Simulated assay, not measured.
Amino acid sequence: MNDPIREAADALLGAYRSMTPIDPLTPKFTDAPLSAAYEIALAQVQDWEKNGDTVKGHKVGLASRAMQRQMGVDQPDFGHLTASMFHLENAPIPAGTFIQPRIEPEVAFVLSRPLRGPGVTVAEAAAAVEFALPALEIVDSRITDWKIGIFDTIADNASSGGVVLGSKPSKLADVDLRLAGCNLHVNGELVATGAGGAVLGSPLNALVWLANTVGPLGVTLEPGHVVLPGSMTRAVPIQPGDTVVATIAGLDSVTAVMEGTDK
């Protein structure tokens, strides 16, 4: 691992500890390939694992056109989901866990068999999914004011922050993920709508993309792991005390409760 990559990883790890964002990394890595950004992200994951955290899945970021337009990028990315990122539905989520959080409604896939690319097909991906759950992903950025390019968000573990899973599993055969509509409410107000088709045509396509992207890097999507394929709507900023509900047709709903500042 060369020094610039280690320094960038340490800067991002420091942002987690201090809850103070850092300047964008892109100007320091103008000519660097995106593989360098993934090296920075992996260095952080390795640090978390050394300190007792464990990888429980992966996420696809920036999978929808809405998210790509919002963040000014033109391709998906991926990040790791660790055990410490998962929060129980309806249980207060400590607001101090995040720097500048936003929330996204997603379909969560739970795998029953391993997936490793390249060459994974939609049929193989569907067969590997044990069930789907409604989910809310809390994205966060360790980069000041979300001033990120694709290099920044990849290096920052795809802007991962937290995950809340719903509690009603559904079989893929029972729902058309392409047509499944989604309503996102914050404190009872409808703030965004979307559909599964916004995620690379279908959330399953995002799962295929992920398996075929991480496979050449030596990563297998493991049984029992959670895969978040991407947001069905734009990301919505949230504050301490907010209650967020995502309702996805065919998958029921999921609720995230942000702890208030007085707790």
Results as ranks from 00 to 15, higher is better:
N2W: 12
D3Q: 15
P4N: 10
D10G: 12
D10N: 14
Y16T: 11
Y16R: 11
R17H: 08
R17W: 04
I22V: 13
D23A: 14
P24T: 07
L25N: 07
P27I: 05
P27T: 04
T30E: 13
S35D: 09
E39I: 06
E39C: 13
I40G: 03
I40A: 01
A43S: 10
Q46P: 12
W48P: 05
K50A: 10
N51C: 08
K59M: 02
V60Y: 02
V60E: 03
L62S: 09
L62M: 15
A63I: 10
A66T: 14
M67K: 06
Q70R: 01
D77W: 00
F78L: 06
F78W: 12
F78A: 06
G79K: 03
H80F: 15
L81V: 07
T82L: 15
A83P: 06
S84M: 11
E89M: 06
A91S: 13
A91G: 11
G96S: 09
T97A: 14
P101S: 11
P101G: 12
R102Y: 11
E104P: 02
E106W: 00
E106D: 00
S112W: 08
R113P: 02
P114M: 09
L115R: 09
G117A: 05
G117Y: 04
G119I: 09
V120M: 11
A123G: 14
A125W: 02
A126S: 12
E130G: 12
F131Q: 12
P134Y: 00
A135D: 00
L136W: 00
E137L: 02
S141D: 07
R142L: 08
R142F: 04
I143D: 04
W146I: 10
G149S: 04
G149R: 08
F151L: 03
D152C: 08
T153L: 07
D156Q: 03
N157K: 06
A158F: 07
S159Q: 11
G162Y: 05
V163L: 13
V164T: 03
V164K: 02
L165P: 01
S167D: 14
P169Q: 01
K171A: 10
K171Q: 15
L172R: 01
A173Y: 08
V175P: 05
D176M: 04
L177G: 05
A180S: 11
A180D: 07
G181R: 15
C182A: 15
C182Q: 01
N183K: 15
H185E: 13
H185M: 11
H185R: 12
H185D: 10
E189I: 09
A192C: 05
T193C: 11
G194E: 03
G196A: 05
A198K: 08
A198N: 14
V199I: 00
G201F: 00
G201W: 00
S202C: 07
P203D: 05
A206Y: 02
L207W: 01
L207N: 07
L207Y: 00
W209M: 06
T213F: 00
V214I: 12
L217I: 06
E222R: 15
E222M: 13
G224D: 01
V226L: 02
V226P: 01
V226H: 03
L228T: 03
L228N: 05
S231H: 06
P237Q: 09
D242Y: 02
T243I: 12
V245T: 04
A246I: 00
T247V: 05
A249R: 13
G250E: 09
D252H: 08
V254A: 04
T255D: 04
A256N: 05
E259T: 02
E259C: 13
T261Y: 14
D262M: 14
